Simulated assay, not measured.
Amino acid sequence: METKTLSLPRLNQLNPTLESTALKLMEEAGELAQVIGKYRGMSGEKVEVNGDLVVKQIARELLDVAQTAVTMMFVMEEQFDLNIEDLLKDHWGKLERKGYLSR
């Protein structure tokens, strides 16, 4: 099985706090849910959208969620002196122990 990784940048034009980033994460997750709900016709309205465009929009919203989550990790690293590399190693180990990942 091929392993892929995703790398997102540390944003340098912002001064986010833990609280503002948590709120932004919820906002972005809500936007993701909204796009998925519209695509699935969960609002009760008839859906007449191009499936490929909607899938791309879902992916874009998901990247916004991921970027905000990564930003929150960087905020925590700075405010609480966390070592992200150590946490990532622990996370990968957990994934391996649970059988989600094999190297």
Results as ranks from 00 to 15, higher is better:
1 M>P: 05
37 G>Y: 13
10 R>G: 03
14 L>H: 08
7 S>K: 15
97 R>V: 01
81 D>I: 01
90 D>I: 00
31 E>S: 03
54 V>A: 14
15 N>E: 15
40 R>M: 15
3 T>F: 12
100 Y>N: 02
59 A>W: 06
58 I>Q: 11
100 Y>I: 08
30 G>P: 02
80 F>K: 06
56 K>G: 07
80 F>M: 05
99 G>T: 01
9 P>Y: 08
6 L>M: 02
90 D>H: 09
59 A>H: 07
101 L>Y: 08
49 V>L: 15
83 N>I: 04
5 T>D: 02
64 D>S: 14
94 K>T: 12
2 E>Y: 01
84 I>M: 07
78 E>L: 02
82 L>H: 13
8 L>T: 13
78 E>H: 02
29 A>S: 00
36 I>E: 03
96 E>L: 07
40 R>Y: 14
90 D>S: 08
75 V>F: 07
71 T>I: 03
63 L>H: 07
82 L>V: 10
102 S>C: 14
74 F>N: 09
72 M>L: 13
14 L>Q: 02
47 V>A: 14
24 K>P: 05
65 V>C: 05
88 L>M: 03
43 S>Q: 07
40 R>K: 13
85 E>N: 05
28 E>P: 07
76 M>K: 05
87 L>D: 10
29 A>P: 04
24 K>M: 07
77 E>Y: 00
25 L>I: 00
5 T>L: 08
64 D>Q: 10
29 A>Q: 04
80 F>L: 00
40 R>V: 12
98 K>F: 01
6 L>C: 01
15 N>Q: 12
77 E>R: 05
31 E>C: 05
19 E>I: 01
77 E>Q: 12
28 E>Q: 08
97 R>L: 13
32 L>T: 04
83 N>F: 00
8 L>H: 08
101 L>I: 00
97 R>I: 03
19 E>R: 08
102 S>M: 11
71 T>F: 02
75 V>K: 03
40 R>T: 02
99 G>Y: 08
5 T>R: 06
61 E>A: 07
100 Y>E: 01
59 A>R: 15
28 E>C: 03
84 I>V: 10
6 L>V: 06
26 M>R: 11
42 M>G: 04
36 I>T: 13
40 R>Q: 15
35 V>A: 11
12 N>H: 15
21 T>C: 12
80 F>C: 09
